[in-house]
């Protein structure tokens, strides 16, 4: 049974586009997309993610791992980049790779219970390469801003281990 509600772009669509799976599928829902231009997507942060499994009893720092904020935003950007030609197979065809990121700033910690709203906009297209910029908000306040991320489409073979 499909459980996506009418008009809601949820997991069934996202999983047809991204190869990531638990615990590294870090986009829950797409709120809005204008293919070739921009996307808004959300991820709810919860203390049931596996990073919170082994937390010291006396810790007071429950901030969500900063690099996973980066990953989550990049996955939203990746959905935008592949919206019209999704390929969730990392072993075949052309795969999307993040080649470079610049000016990615963290503004405040994100905590379990926060809902990240990722916004990403394609700023330039150079052949097979896209430049995407954007930000992530919690309760309307920026927690992350991304100056630019370079996504390139490459043959899947480039990801294969070199034979020993």
């Amino acid at each position: 049974m499909r459980t996506d509600r009418p008009g809601l772009i949820g997991q069934s669509v996202i999983r047809r586009a991204l190869p990531h799976r638990f615990p590294m599928l870090l986009v829950d829902r797409v709120l809005d997309v204008l293919p070739g231009e921009r996307i808004t997507a959300v991820k709810a942060v919860t203390c049931n993610e596996p990073w919170y499994r082994e937390v010291a009893a006396d810790t007071e720092d429950f901030a969500y791992p900063q690099v996973l904020l980066m990953e989550s935003w990049c996955q939203a950007a990746g959905l935008l980049a592949t919206w019209e030609a999704p390929n969730p197979d990392v072993l075949a065809g052309r795969v999307m790779l993040f080649g470079a990121v610049t000016g990615l700033e963290y503004h405040r910690p994100v905590l379990p219970g926060d809902v990240l709203e990722h916004r990403a906009t394609i700023t330039r297209t150079l052949g097979d390469t896209l430049i995407i910029a954007g930000e992530s908000l919690v309760d309307g306040e920026p927690v992350l801003t991304v100056g630019s991320a370079v996504l390139a489409f490459r043959p899947a073979e480039e990801l294969r281990p070199v034979p020993a």
Binding site: R21, L25, P50, V67, E71, C74, L91
Partner: peptide, 17 residues
């Protein structure tokens, strides 16, 4: 922890990691 989902059957240590 990340490898089962990045990617299933084809583990690559994520760039963010």
């Amino acid at each position: 922890t990340v490898l089962p989902g990045h990617y299933p059957g084809f583990p690559i240590f994520p760039g963010v990691c």
